[in-house]
Write a protein that binds this DNA or RNA. Structure first.
Lengths: 148, 148
DNA sequence: AACGATTTAATCGTGCGCGATATAAATGCA
DNA sequence: TGCATTTATATCGCGCACGATTAAATCGTT
């Protein structure tokens, strides 16, 4: 009954899009960005900018390097992003006098104030997800350790 | 003992980066792309190009719209990507004679042949993940339904 | 003090994602 | 038939991600 698949029977299961963790992750990440977009538009932030602001709301000032460590991004991504946040008046950037290689990124009053508007976002997003709180936590922790 | 957090005690738990499903997803997706990159470089493909090829290896030819449905991308993303695949000789694009609005994307012999080289990728990636097969499947299915 | 190695950030080019818009073909319907 | 509407793809601009490179400051060793 069973038969060894000939070359023409490919793709094998392993290459089917449906079986790819990578595609599930890719699609979920794209959909998540779309879910945030309308809320972040109201704050004048993009999705990666929002993540950078989360880091700064926890601790400001921070060096570019420290931000990069927290977000797992390097300066070629962060520098232009931070310049846009600076242009929007949310942060200030200046060289560290103690080590001129470093650039210190600090929230402005406007940047700190934006946190108040952001506070409603997690709740709204949780509702949009329509998923038990515990399941969200489980998934989040699983993703944190994925490929790391 | 307990105290109501004052305004200065923010950010509240809800805004902490550690608690964000969106950031876990963002980071995992970035890391996944990095994990694939060396393998895909060998095939001359980017990560989204690889996903498009997976779709075509399952069924070619397909219209741009059908590819977009499968990948959840629209023509503004796909058209340039497909032009690059065409420039690389992996696909051909031509208008559907039965409906001149549609563009049909078909694998070339070279595009079909690339599948042989791609076949080793899922196994290599699974090893790199270092995660039980069942856990990969569970995570994948969970992600498929996330925010959809 | 000198000088090579390391660290830190910026710059540049390429390829996504996607909103907004454009264009052309097909369809609906009065 | 004629014309508005809908559908399918393409175009354009912006903001990431990231590899490769550059430039400057600091560190370590002698």
């Amino acid at each position: 009954m069973s038969q060894k698949p000939a070359s023409s029977d490919r793709p094998p299961e392993a290459l089917r899009l449906d079986n790819q963790l990578c595609f599930a992750l890719y699609g979920a990440a794209n959909r998540m960005t779309r879910l945030y977009r309308p809320m972040l538009d109201a704050l004048g932030l993009t999705y990666p900018q929002y993540l950078a602001m989360l880091v700064l709301w926890e601790a400001s000032p921070r060096t570019v390097g420290a931000l990069g460590d927290a977000l797992d991004l390097d300066s070629s991504t962060l520098t232009p992003l931070l310049k846009r946040l600076e242009a929007g008046g949310l942060v200030e950037r200046h060289r560290d006098p103690d080590d001129e290689r470093r650039v210190i990124v600090a929230l402005t009053d406007k940047g700190r104030a934006l946190r108040d508007q952001a506070e409603t976002i997690p709740e709204k997003l949780f509702c949009a997800l329509d998923m038990p709180l515990e399941a969200v936590g489980t998934l989040r922790e699983r993703l944190k350790t994925l490929a790391k």
